[in-house]
């Protein structure tokens, strides 16, 4: 586990120095929110319509902005043969996958933390602490599932010339089981439901996260091997 932490720390150090992923993710997510809020401008006073539209908008912004970051997850490893150097280290390949998940989670959570206040302002929400905490729980579970699969597929598309095109094509269908409950749970939270009402979605997300993390952890070795 400590080696995964070293990999994540290395990735974050390099990312915060260049901010290549962060800048593009922030800009994309904010742009998506602004475009949707402008196009839905007439409905923004109608709470019922906003409740139906806003959760989808939030997850569209997070998913596509996150995908921008995921497509670059292994790019720094391909420069100067660094992925080979990582594979030469006396660590389990699963530790590399876990390290990449940790750094991706940190970066995507940061993007979400910056984007969320804009979402609340642009869509006229007034959230209390309980609702906000519940929303954070849904974001945590949804994002983890997204990153667990996305990191694996990012490694899978590494050797292809059309990596940036191939990743969304492969990722979006696999993500549906996490996106649908995430959007539904977010809608429930924003409508003021409590945690008991959201239990089916939360349970589904938790199971998806666990299953996909374990499977991805196990198959990662074969994905990065020649």
């Amino acid at each position: 586990m400590i080696r995964s932490y070293y990999i994540a720390a290395k990735d974050l150090k390099a990312e915060f120095r260049t901010k290549q992923m962060l800048n593009s993710m922030f800009i994309f997510s904010l742009l998506a929110l602004v475009v949707f809020s402008v196009s839905f401008g007439d409905f923004l006073g109608d709470a019922e319509k906003v409740e139906k539209l806003a959760p989808g908008v939030l997850w569209i912004a997070f998913t596509f902005a996150g995908m921008l970051g995921l497509s670059r997850t292994f790019v720094m490893e391909t420069e100067n043969g660094c992925l080979e150097a990582l594979m030469l280290c006396p660590v389990d390949k699963g530790a590399i996958y876990t390290g990449k998940i940790l750094s991706n989670l940190a970066i995507v959570f940061l993007m979400e933390a910056v984007t969320l206040p804009f979402f609340i302002i642009l869509f006229n929400y007034n959230l209390d602490i309980r609702t906000l905490l519940l929303l954070l729980l849904i974001l945590l579970l949804g994002t983890f599932g997204f990153i667990a699969v996305g990191t694996l597929l990012s490694a899978l598309t590494l050797g292809t010339r059309t990596r940036e095109l191939l990743l969304p094509v492969l990722l979006l269908p696999v993500l549906l089981p996490v996106l649908i409950p995430s959007v539904e749970a977010t809608a429930g939270v924003l409508a003021g439901n409590n945690i008991v009402d959201l239990f089916p979605e939360i349970r589904l997300l938790a199971v998806y996260d666990l299953v996909f993390f374990v499977i991805s952890h196990l198959v990662f070795e074969y994905v990065v091997s020649d």
Binding site: R17, N80, G81, A85, C89
Partner: peptide
């Protein structure tokens, strides 16, 4: 792997 040191024509270094 712990016993091996590899020097390749790739530098195996992170530019950032």
């Amino acid at each position: 792997r712990k016993e091996i040191g590899m020097l390749s024509h790739d530098s195996y270094l992170y530019g950032d």
